[in-house]
Amino acid sequence: MLLIDCPYCGPRAEIEFAYGGEAHIARPAADVSEAEWSAFLYLRDNTKGVLAERWRHSHGCGRFFNALRDTRTDQFHAFYEIGMPRPDVRDAV
């Protein structure tokens, strides 16, 4: 069980959180092309390495936030608020 550091509540066990998929996927305006909208819906990077992803502290404060997690090791490198830019973390492993 992961240990997740909610930016609002501090470190809590994974069981308190809900996963929210890849972060920084901007929802396009409604007038984009079919290809752009389909990419928004379905295309993800499937990162092997450091992935920016969304979590929600659903059984705590209820807030969404972003995290950088290495998908190879499950190690977190950063937790940050929605709307903040992705921190500059290189693939460490």
Binding site: R54, R56, I82
Partner: peptide, 13 residues
Amino acid sequence: LNMMEDYLQTEWP
């Protein structure tokens, strides 16, 4: 409710 919170917090702050 989760979907409402998701859009409210992340798309329409």
